[in-house]
Nucleic acid binder design. Structure first.
Length: 596
DNA sequence: CCCGTTGCGG
């Protein structure tokens, strides 16, 4: 082992060490030979341990050193960064500053990346100020890390300021900007930056293309989709997995599942993410069958479903009430995954929409942490099932836990209150939403309030509310009002509203049925005939409405006017019995809207 | 040492 006496050889050996065991061997030999320069190489030994995934040994040696230089600190910091331990990175960074060790470009770069992991902009800005103090303002690595931090925190204005000041811009800077604008839903700005880049004679790589594709996915322009896809092919970058996956996602998000499937089928190397993109595309477009079939196909191709594809499956279950499948997915998740709040919320939503609100509530109560969406889902769950009081009680609990409600929380709450006829509460919270929570009411909120008032027969107040709207009232508002007029026999107001509704050309046959029934109540038979004719014409084009329920693992679908179910007579008898019982307690159904 | 693919509500 004579070579060990030569420091140059040790340096080389440590750099070449590709695994933990080699590092340990070299370290042991160094100790054995009692090398005089031993101490000078400790930084290298630590770096070698750290980069070979023995961060614990590295840290131990690190702490034993009497003094630590910048390279030793950086070795540890970079290792923690690879392990995605942002707290450790920032802890060591702060210690460097305290110990008076001067950080260099890579220290600042990695420290800023840690801030991205924690979404801590304040810490990032503090680090950035230090970097400027130490003269790293024009460093591409430090600068691109800082603009990336701003971009990730949604501060594109600040990101642009850093970007514009940078004297030298590498490809990473450009792609960070393009991706920043893409994920912050500023697709036009993303395309603009890309054009600026081209003007400076720089060609994009696959990362830039991914950003462009994401930007285009948010622009409803089919020519743009095809041109960015064509550009990827032209630049010979369409064989990159991430480029292909982004293309699948872009087409799927815009409802072109045929094109998404086409790109997906042509992929030579698929991974769980690409499967997830296609599956969630099917799920978000309501294609339940394709979603579940693709999930099975994914498994048969040897890919374990990840949380993303399982969430798509849960969404599908929720859409058509597949309780049994939903339950088994819940079990699968419990066995294999951390039941985090995102998956948990998807499961809660599934139970709620599959008619098992008590299961939904039980899981909600057991959750370790709840975010805005989990609260919104559980409040909506009570709304769906007509429990306005419980929805309100949960909303109050939510406020107590200091979780800020958003426009969606109020939409769910107001919906729940309106469907339970809790008029006073609805008005109270609607007013507070505007005055205290500074949320501008949207069409949805107005529709809930109009429904709330009109349902209670307070049609004039509903009209006053509509008059107070800043925006032009839309279909949802007028339909809510018409429904109230119909149920409360408000004939003159209703006629005006019915005309408004028809002017807006609704493509929902249920709305036409409501208008038709309203005119029938007024005995305006010409109008009834007109609306019925429109409905007949629509029926040719439109898929009929249906409902479905799963019993013992079997799905029973009931399509409009379809009597083919094998237990149709039995079902009809039960419906008739329910109808009699409802009439007995003076709960009168409107049979004109029913199939029987 | 800095950038890129899929995901919970209404």
């Amino acid at each position: 082992m004579c070579f060990l006496t030569n420091p140059k050889h040790i340096k080389g050996l440590l750099l070449a060490a590709k695994d933990k065991r080699t590092t340990i061997k070299i370290h042991a030999l160094m100790i054995k030979t009692n090398l005089s320069t031993y101490r000078n190489f400790m930084g290298r030994v630590i770096a070698s341990y750290a980069s070979n995934y023995d961060i614990v040994s590295a840290r131990k040696l690190f702490e034993e050193l009497p003094q630590r230089g910048v390279d030793t600190f950086n070795a540890m910091i970079i290792a923690y960064s690879r392990k995605e331990s942002p707290f450790e990175v920032l802890g060591l960074y702060n210690r460097m500053i305290k110990d008076g060790v001067k950080p260099d470009s890579s220290t600042f770069t990695v420290a800023l990346k840690a801030c991205v992991g924690l979404m801590d902009m304040e810490m990032g800005e503090e680090i950035w100020r230090k970097a400027v103090d130490f003269g790293y303002e024009n460093d591409v690595f430090v600068g691109s890390s800082m603009l990336n931090l701003y971009a990730k925190c949604g501060k594109m204005y600040e990101a642009t300021a850093v970007f514009d000041k940078m004297k030298r811009k590498d490809l990473v800077c450009w792609s960070s900007m393009i991706n920043g604008f893409a994920v912050n839903r500023q697709p036009c700005e993303a395309v603009e930056i890309y054009r600026r880049m081209q003007k400076e004679g720089i060609e994009g790589d696959e990362v830039v293309i991914v950003g462009l594709i994401q930007a285009c996915a948010n622009l409803g322009d089919s020519r743009l989709w095809l041109s960015v896809h064509g550009y990827a092919i032209k630049r010979d970058l369409d064989f990159d997995v991430k480029v292909q996956t982004s293309l699948v996602d872009m087409y799927a998000k815009n409802g072109h599942l045929d094109l998404a499937s086409h790109v997906f089928k042509k992929m030579s190397h698929k991974n769980v993410v690409s499967w997830g993109a296609l599956i969630s595309g099917f799920a978000q477009n309501g294609l339940v069958g394709s979603t579940l079939e693709t999930l099975v196909e994914m498994q048969s191709c040897g890919f374990e479903p990840d949380s993303v594809s399982l969430m798509s499956a849960l969404l599908s279950c929720a859409q058509i009430g597949l309780l049994k499948l939903g339950k088994s997915i819940h079990g699968y998740i419990l066995r294999r995954f951390d039941f985090d709040q995102v998956l948990g919320t998807a499961v809660i939503d599934m139970y709620s929409k599959c008619g098992a609100p008590s299961c939904a509530r039980a899981i909600f109560d057991q959750m370790e942490s709840r975010d805005l969406i989990s609260w919104n889902v559980i409040i909506a769950s009570y709304g769906i099932h007509g429990h306005g009081k419980e929805a309100l009680s949960l909303f109050l609990q939510m406020i107590e836990t200091k979780q800020m409600p958003d426009h969606s929380t109020f939409a769910s709450l107001l919906w729940a209150l309106s469907h339970s006829g809790l008029v006073e509460e609805g008005q109270y919270w609607f007013d507070l939403m505007v005055s205290k929570y500074k949320i501008q009411p949207s069409e949805k909120h107005y529709a809930c309030m109009v429904d709330l008032l009109a349902r209670a027969g307070r049609v004039e107040e509903a009209l006053q509310l509509i008059d107070s709207m800043n925006t032009e009232p839309g279909l949802a508002v007028w339909v809510a009002l018409l429904s109230g007029c119909h149920n409360n026999g408000k004939l003159s107001v209703g006629e005006m509203v019915a005309k408004k509704v028809l002017e807006l050309n609704p493509d929902d046959s249920g709305i036409h049925a409501l208008v038709s029934n309203f005119f029938a109540m007024k005995e305006k038979w010409d109008e009834v005939a007109g609306v019925r004719k429109t409905m007949r014409n629509m029926r040719i084009k439109k898929v009929p409405g249906y409902s479905a329920v799963e019993v013992n693992g079997e799905l029973h679908a009931f399509i409009m006017e379809d009597k083919s179910h094998h237990q149709f007579e039995d079902i009809l008898n039960i419906l008739k019995k329910l109808d009699r019982e409802m009439r007995a307690i003076r709960c009168l159904p409107n049979t004109e809207l029913c199939m029987v």
